[in-house]
Write a protein that binds this DNA or RNA. Sequence first.
DNA 1: ACGTTTCCCTAGTAATCCGATAGGAAAACT
DNA 2: AGTTTTCCTATCGGATTACTAGGGAAACGT
Lengths: 157, 157
Amino acid sequence: MDNRGMRISARADYAVRAALELAAAGDDTSLKAEAIASAQGIPHKFLEGILGDLRRGGLVVSQRGGRGGYRLARPADSIAIADVIRVADGPLVSVRGVRPPELSYCGPAESLLPLWIAVRANVRKILGAVTLAHVAAAKLPDDVLSLTEDPEAWTNP
Amino acid sequence: MDNRGMRISARADYAVRAALELAAAGDDTSLKAEAIASAQGIPHKFLEGILGDLRRGGLVVSQRGGRGGYRLARPADSIAIADVIRVADGPLVSVRGVRPPELSYCGPAESLLPLWIAVRANVRKILGAVTLAHVAAAKLPDDVLSLTEDPEAWTNP
DNA sequence: ACGTTTCCCTAGTAATCCGATAGGAAAACT
DNA sequence: AGTTTTCCTATCGGATTACTAGGGAAACGT
């Protein structure tokens, strides 16, 4: 009965951290997978697979060979955290494996669907508005930052 | 690379729906597991385990025997959806299996922690404010309902 | 051309989890 | 007693998670 709930997977976490490392490096310099891996403490062969997803998703471009590596495909302020998570890990929010609009409830549970929709909309609003540039520069938007100012937000239960 | 992201498990979904069925039945009448299972289309032996969690979590009281069954331990307007999910499924939001406050990031990822905290705070704000009574009566709070009025909230990507 | 570097691709794997099932013991009722 | 229903433990196949291994393909420097 422990550790489930809405979890952000290691893949998603690693993907965002790798993208942040690229954002911090700048649009011109490219980083090698191994450099990112050791900077962020991510298993480098695992990270290689994730970077492949980011490239296939069009968020990152790569170059092989001696001066090779990865760099962002677009400016860091045009890539939202939600983009990275979706490319690396699939849909942001799902209920029982399917996305909310595909669900159907009956009886007293009928209003559950709008509730899940509301939760998803809210998660989107945050992760879709915060960009790599925001996080890399440690300057979160004000409305997001204000959520973290309530001490209650940092407590466990 | 499909269907991951922040998912609400079948356990959590089933738990909430079962609790809603109990809320709709009223504080005095008790429902048998089998009745809830067939009303909501939930495998009944699986549901039995979930109802056990709800009982151990103090959300539900049970009675065995001929006139037995389950009923809510508290009024439906004092039980939040978040309570049900936590009891059945563990912490609401976790990153890589651990809860946000236990994480530590370095370098350009340092501001990721406040971001996860903000996401969690926001999910809490919704699921902690909406009660079983709200959903069972199909009367979600206004601020939650307003999130669902944007047609964008119902679209896939 | 050659060798190095680095990305890229396919498999594989051990552990865990998820959703579900089975069989029966314990308690409450008629 | 006998029925009903909760309660407990144990198990299951399959999927997922988080990695690891090994090598092929491209870009570079010399």
